[in-house]
Write a protein that binds this DNA or RNA. Structure first.
Lengths: 325, 325
DNA sequence: AGCCGGGATGACAACGTTGTCAAAGTAGCA
DNA sequence: TGCTACTTTGACAACGTTGTCATCCCGGCT
């Protein structure tokens, strides 16, 4: 910047004014500075800039996701990016892998870099540690899972309603023995889906058979193994509700291996690419990660714009995509 | 930091020494400072720190991808993150959607934030604009596609070899009329795959029928439409090589709609989740985005560690996954 | 006692930028 | 002409941190 000022024959402050498009610079000086910037290929140092600025904004937000590479997280990430680019804001992202310590480490790393705001898909079960960040004025929005011991803006899928829809669908097709495959109960969304399953069974006056319920499953392999065991029961379930993406895939694999994919119905929670090309197609309760990301980003930016209204809690509806299973 | 110093009754410099674990601080003062930091929940301001430091490192790298949300990009992104966390480095990511202007804008935004290095999956066809960054000392690594008018480290898939493997596979199964579906020829990887197709046809003494070649296709719909047209030809192709992910899906849809999925062979470039569950499973030339990301990140960090050897060019091999098509 | 060496500590400047305020210049008006 | 009001410009301090260097203190030596 010093060089630019020297080349243009003006003071540092004038260069600063041109860069930030502040009013009160004559057209002639402005062009001279612009030319110098061009010639020297000068780039503003945003770190120094945000250090000095009163608001201290870094034009960067942080996003903490379960796993950047999984389709749900990455679609959400992308939706946030889409909102952010419009404001010239960049996105820092990190994966948690259900690791509470990593969550705190990431928050701390983001805080060190003075991000303007945070979108968090949490793994931990106590977010009181975030009170300090809040005091520092950093807004945050929780997505997919709610915070614990902390009131904050949230954007959630309608897990309970979605699970109930799934059971309604199966019950409407005459199924009475509906098995349940669920992820770790410690994950709030998984617990809600299970609750939806029980509630809807209750409404439909169907018995809840503990033998048909398999909780705390992680990954396709476990799901495939448990599904195989379920199908060996007598009487066997006539339908399976897999309450998570990978569990659906595992269940599907098991059904095909046993040649039962046309006999036993399968409904999954969360859509799967190519689910429409299987035979039969898999019916799913589709979440809408793009809508969640957009909502979360908009909420965050409205806070950054000074919105001080009480915490908002948005529920993003699910969609049942019937594909003949 | 001032407050910490005051509370601990020491100077700013001593606090700085404790934070950076510099030697030459008595144990007593060190603990007093540590307690004060804890009490005040002090967080170092990395922006100011990197501003003052001689090396000016921000412990942040930038990653520019085609689309954060697509599985290939996001797996790559994740692999980079995995290498970065080990060093306490955070990752900024942006999507460019084949937009050259966006590529430059992202590089500029990253440069403003003084990232330590850049991993780029480029869209543009002239990277001489990066010479200035290089002069500034920022290392960068290109992944998936090579840079133009610039010599830089690269990590590429063996596109040509992979395409040849696909044709070998089909030829070995007796196919003589093999159609080709390709993405935009302006994309280097697409051009190489097409070249591999032609070379291998030549080696096998098979004629290259221009009618069977459909280039510059984008997205599943176009692929589905073109596949439909291809299958209407007389004589029709007996096999299809779809040289990109989405094109494979489009081709698959068309085959199923026409009920030809057991008659016409299909080989795709790049793996598809669930491809193994279709009937028949789709044979693919699988790329290895995780290996590419790891290689790119390691290359970048070795540069950051001062490696000044000539530019490296890593080729990541493909794998043929035969699934009976 | 006087001196030297080395370890601990702090004062101060500097990183690249912007906020504040004063100075200089210009135009308008009585 | 002399005054005010306003616009343009720049000098300087400050943001939060670390590099440099001086100071202080203590033990061991002559």
């Amino acid at each position: 910047m010093r060089e630019v000022a020297a080349l243009a024959g003006v003071s540092l402050k004038t260069v600063s004014r041109v860069i930030n498009a502040e009013p009160g610079v004559s057209a002639e000086l402005a062009t001279r500075v612009a030319v110098a910037i061009e010639r020297l290929d000068y780039r503003q140092n945003l770190q120094a800039s945000s250090l000095r600025r009163v608001d201290g904004k870094s034009a960067t937000i942080g996003v903490i996701l379960e796993d950047i590479a999984n389709p749900f997280s990455s679609t959400l990430h992308r939706a946030i990016e889409n909102v952010a680019v419009k404001r010239g804001v960049l996105v820092l992202a990190g994966s948690l892998e259900e690791d509470e310590a990593r969550e705190r480490a990431l928050v701390s790393a983001f805080a060190s870099r003075r991000v303007d705001g945070l979108v968090i898909m949490p793994a931990s079960h106590d977010h009181s540690y975030l009170l300090n960040e809040r005091k520092a004025g950093t807004p945050f929005v929780f997505v997919d899972r709610p915070p614990a011991f902390l009131d904050a803006d949230t954007v959630l899928t309608d897990n309970l309603g979605g699970a109930r829809r799934a059971i309604q669908h199966l019950a409407a097709h005459g199924h009475q023995r509906i098995a349940y495959l669920g992820d770790l109960q410690s994950i709030m969304t998984a617990a809600l889906r299970y609750q939806g399953y029980r509630e809807e069974l209750d409404v439909k006056h169907l018995p809840l058979d503990p033998e048909l319920v398999r909780l705390d499953l992680r990954g396709t392999e476990r799901a495939e193994a448990e599904t195989t065991k379920l199908l060996a029961l007598r009487p066997a379930p006539t339908a399976i509700f897999a309450a998570q993406n990978l569990l659906t895939i595992g269940a599907c694999r098991a059904l095909r291996r046993l040649g039962l994919h046309h006999k036993v119905a399968l409904v999954g929670f969360d859509d799967i690419l190519l689910a429409d090309m299987l035979d039969p197609g898999i019916t799913v309760i589709a979440q809408d990660p793009a809508a969640m990301g957009t909502a979360a980003a908009e909420l965050l930016f409205s806070r950054l714009d000074g919105d001080r209204s009480p915490t908002a809690h948005r529920i993003i509806p699910t969609r049942l995509i019937a594909r003949g299973s």
